[in-house]
Each structure stands twice: as C-alpha cells, then as structure tokens.
Nucleic acid binder design. Structure first.
Length: 576
DNA sequence: AAATCCCCCAACCGCAGACAT
DNA sequence: CATGTCTGCGGTTGGGGGATT
C-alpha cells in the first residue's frame, strides 16, 4: 500500500477508505492540498483521462473517479469560483426549463462552472422554493417539458423517484423534466415547422418588463397564450425567487429591462414581434467538430457568447460601443475605435474600474443594470441585474468561429456554405433582427437580411498601430431563405459528445475565467437602436480574447497606450 | 448561549454509455 | 458477441458554518 503524505487522513468523520480490490485502501473524504498538488502535477504532465492510472503512477490513494471529480470540480484551470451571478442564475433556470436535470450540459453553457455547482445551486433553489411554495420557474419561462411533453420519456435513473416527485410538483403539475434518454438534446422545434411563426412580447410598464425575454434563448419556444400569462401572476416578486438567498438584498433583476425613457417614449406599451422561428438553445455539432487550436484565433462560437450571459458589467456605465450603422449598405464596415485609452478592447479580465465612463449610447435597449454590491458576490464584484442575452434564434447555433484551420480542406469546403449561413445564426445577426423588430415595429424590413461578416483579431500583431485599433464588422445582404441550417448532416451523438467535450474547455479557454484576479472580463451590455447597432466591447472581448499572456503581462501604462487589437473578421476562416 | 434551521459545498455512489479486448 | 474497463453523469449524503429562534 502506497501511503500518501505519510498517513491517510481522517476526514469528515465519514467513511474514509475503500479498497480498490488490489489491497490498497483508497482514501475517501476531503482532499488535502498535497493531494491536490500531486493530482495537478500529474494532469499537467499527462493530461486528463486515464484517471485510474493516477493512483498507480503517483501513489495517490484515491480512486480514478475521485481524481477525475477533484480535477474537474476544483483543480482544472479556468474554473470560476464564487456565487452565481444573476445572469448565470437566470441562464440556469432557462437551461433547466429547457433541459431538465442535465447538469453537465448546463455547465457547458456556463464557462468555468461545474455541473456539480449547478446541481447544488438548483437543488438548493428547489428546496427553497418548495419551502416557500413558489413556482419553480418564473412566469415567463415555460419548461420545455410543458411545451413538448414526452410521456414516454423517463429519467435515466428510475429509482430516483423522490426527486422526480419534487420536480414534478414544483414544475406546476408538469410532467417530468425534459430529460429524454433517447435524445440528449432538447427536442428542438422543427426547423421549418413554422418558419413564418412569430412571437410577440408585451410590456405594459416597467414593472412587468421582467416578463420579457425576447433575447433569451428559450423563453419564446412557444408563445405564451393569454391563459398562460394570466395563470401566472405578472407582478414581479419583491424578492425574486431567482435570487440567491445570500444575495437577497439584490434580488435577481429582469433579464430584459427598459430604460424609463424608452418606456415613456412608447407610452408604456411596448410590443415586440419577432418574425422568426423561436430560438433554440443548443448549437449543432457539425462545426464544433474540431477543437480550436490554441495557437490560432480562439474563436469558436459566437453562439457561446450569446448563451453565456453571465458576467457582471462594469459598475460604471461602460458604453464604449461598437456602433454599426443599421442601415449600412452591403459590406459596410464599422470600425471601433477605443475612445478611452484606459481600456484595451480585447484584453482579458479588464478591470471594471478601468472601464471608461464615457458616452452613453442613445440606445433603445440599453441594458439597465444596477450596480449591486454584494458581500457574497464573486470576489466582491458588483452583481448587476440581468442583461439581455443575444442567443441565436436560429436552430443551429453553429459555432461560427470555429477554427476551421483544423478542418481538412474537404471539410472546409463542405462547410463553407454552412459557415456562411452559420454566421446568420449568430449573436450579431440576432441583434440585427431584433433591432429590426424593436426599432419601431418595422415589420416590413425586406426579406433580405444582413449577414454579418467579421474578421478575427490579429492580437499577436499588437504593435500599437493606430490602424489596428479597430474592430470591423461588415454586413452583406443575403437571402433569408438561406438562413436555414440543415441539421440533416448532424449526428446527435457527435453533437452531444462535442458539446460535452469541447464547449466547456473551449469557452474556458476563450474566456479566461481565472478566479485569481477576480475580474470578470466579458461583461455584456448590448444596445440596439433603430439606426445603430451597438455592441458592447465587452462582448467583443469575449468573442476575441486577446492573448491571455500578453493581456496579463500588460501593464497599465501599456494599456493606457492605446492597446490596439485588430479584430477584423475578414480574415476569419469560414466566415466570409 | 444553545438549539435549530438552512444553505453551501464537497464528495461519494450507482448507473449507463463508450470503448477495448 | 460477450465481457471488462473507463469515463461521465445524475442523485444523494453529510459536514461546516452562518442565520435565526
């Protein structure tokens, strides 16, 4: 028996040891720092996987499963510690409504978060709501299993009836959570099931604005019928059930709110009609098939950004936006100039305090966030209210920015069209669409929609050239009829596998969620106007993170010296 | 001050799928 | 094809600690 650290520590007063069948009594219970170090070193040297070999090769008296769990939940890089932000909470609820108890898949949408964290959060929340007699989902979120009941589907673990029962009870007499065993993905609304369908959001005043989530990925899966709306009392709870009990003083705020000016301007009545199929959450896998190469532009997914609305934004009204002329003609290019030298538009983990407090965009949908400072929030970063997300509303939320360098030529070629289309499935395209919809109800926009093309940043060429200090986005006209991404070629298993295997890693790599800094880099705030499409540079940051090393080693002075990162998407493979 | 409640968190367990032999 | 192993996932448990009674 190989003893680690000279002894096997007694931990937690629970059963601490188990035999691995080979006579070695494996340790159980809490891990020590020394054990963590051993495991970390081993994984760094040998990579993940083959967990059972850890014990053999390191003498760590832990079973493979325990090692894997420890690594995944505590030791692996880019883990994000701390309380869930309001955005994350909101997303979890939405994801749960969509997926049921698919914690791993939910975690894939929450970079840096583990399935265990999410599961713990949800179960805590479940208990709390159970105790309070509150519904599990806010009124504006209809669980997918209510929309698409599949009575023949059952949880994989049939023996966990009690938990099921709880779920069922709190899902308002619904069927079991949507955890189809046959399909790992939420049963998507057929792509062309109702291509002309639209859904409308109504808001009569600010207090009910929390009901509106036109940009959220799941809410409009099916429009709420009047009866559904009436069956769920609209007034927002004073203390949101979505809020963390430890952040009760800062209840989760609406995902989608309106500036008072806007509300006034619209006579307290705002309707939105989105002439498009309801959004779905998961991207297909075809273009997620290849992990990106770290040496290349780590752009894997605009949709990931669009479904990762979890960062607080600056305590300041950070509005150094990329402004895109809405009525830009074909292939117009908008250029972002960093108007504030204190901020590198693509740096990782920008200090919120360094965000400029410059101009405020005349936005219609400017995210209204309130800087809530919670003592329990993530590294004391302010916890802001929900901001709208920009998920793709298209069925295949394809990773637009896959590193197609890893594709074979054939794959590249075969995927060219798909890539071209996929961009229309992306965040910015959604922004456009929603801008259209939101901008005065101009439902007569031509069928030609704009395709966004973009170029990746060449952040390695960070040579302080002023010309590099831009982010270019161009639009092309394209036929909306092409905006249908076929899923015929998609393989569900591949999709599942890829999501499981790549998303978390990829996102984690894309977004440096290092907890050491405590800074959150991808604060999102997006603004839509009639005449302008404005993107928060933070969002762009999350799209185009600069080289982390460079960003981390960059001094403030250097940052002040006009960090310039070329973010032209024109060079992005497979996009243009 | 003690008891209780509750939340958070870490870790374990069993199961099932993927894969190799 | 059967079996074994590895891995991942979801459910559950139990301790620590803060808040409340």
């Amino acid at each position: 028996m190989i003893m680690y650290g000279g002894e096997i520590e007694k931990a937690g007063g629970s059963a601490n040891h188990m035999s691995n069948g080979g006579g070695v009594v494996l340790k159980k219970g809490p891990w020590t720092a020394a054990e963590d170090e051993i495991l970390s070193v081993y994984v760094r040297e040998n990579g993940e996987g083959n967990w059972n070999a850890v014990q053999k090769n390191t003498g760590l008296v832990r079973c493979g499963k325990s090692c894997r769990l420890r690594w995944a939940n505590h030791l692996r890089p880019n883990l994000r510690k701390g309380s869930f932000t309001g955005d994350e909470e909101r997303l979890i609820i939405q994801l749960h409504a969509q997926l049921g108890n698919k914690w791993a898949r939910m975690a894939a949408q929450l970079p840096g978060r583990t399935d265990n964290e999410i599961k713990n959060y949800w179960n805590t929340r479940l208990k709390r709501l159970q105790r309070q007699g509150l519904p599990l989902y806010p009124p504006d979120i209809i669980p997918n299993h209510q929309l698409h009941p599949h009575p023949h589907h059952h949880q994989q673990n049939h023996h966990h009836q009690q938990h099921q029962h709880q779920q069922m009870y709190f899902q308002q007499q619904s069927s079991q959570p949507n955890t189809p065993s046959s399909s790992p993905l939420p049963s998507p609304t057929p792509i062309n099931a109702n291509p002309s369908s639209s859904f409308t959001f109504h808001s009569t005043n600010a207090s009910t604005a929390y009901l509106l989530h036109p940009l959220s990925p799941h809410t409009p899966t099916t429009p709420q019928t009047p009866s559904q709306l009436s069956s769920t009392p609209p007034p927002p709870p004073l203390s949101s059930p979505l809020s963390s009990p430890r952040n009760n003083q800062y209840p989760t705020l609406p995902l989608f709110t309106f500036p008072s000016s806007q509300i006034n301007n619209n006579n307290n009545n705002t309707n939105f009609t989105f002439p498009r199929p309801p959004p779905l959450l998961q991207p297909p896998s075809s273009l997620l098939a290849k992990r990106y190469n770290n040496s290349n532009t780590p752009l894997n997914c605009i949709n990931r950004v669009s479904t990762a609305p979890f960062s607080p934004v600056s305590r300041d009204s950070y509005t150094s936006f990329l402004t895109l002329p809405y009525s830009s003609p074909t292939a117009q290019t908008a250029t972002y100039h960093n108007t504030n030298n204190n901020y590198s538009s693509f740096s990782l983990n920008p200090s919120p305090s360094s965000y400029p407090t410059t101009t405020s965009s005349p936005s219609f949908l400017h995210s209204q966030y309130t800087p809530n400072y919670s003592s329990t929030s993530f590294h004391n970063n302010p916890v802001y209210s929900m901001k709208q997300e920009f998920p793709s509303n298209q069925i295949p939320q394809i990773g637009v920015f896959n590193n197609v360098n890893n594709f074979t030529d054939n794959e590249k070629q075969n995927n060219t069209n798909l890539h071209r289309r996929s961009i229309s499935c992306s965040l910015l395209e959604d922004v456009l669409v929603e801008a259209e919809a939101l901008a005065g109800g101009d439902g007569d926009r031509p069928s030609k929609r704009r395709q966004l093309t973009a170029s990746p940043p060449n952040h390695h060429n960070n040579n302080n050239n002023d010309n590099d200090n831009f982010f270019s986005v161009s639009f092309e006209q394209y036929d909306s009829s092409e905006n249908i991404c076929s899923l015929q070629d998609l393989k569900p298993k591949e999709e599942e596998s890829l999501q499981m295997n790549t998303m978390q890693d990829d996102i984690a790599k894309l977004l440096d969620w290092g907890s050491d800094s405590g800074e959150i880099s991808n604060g999102q705030s997006s603004v839509l106007t009639d005449d302008n499409l404005v993107l928060d540079v933070h969002q762009l940051n999350s799209l185009f993170p600069a080289d982390s090393t460079a960003a981390e080693t960059r001094t403030n002075d250097e940052q002040n010296n006009n960090d310039k990162i070329n973010c032209s998407w024109d060079n992005l493979h497979g996009v243009s």
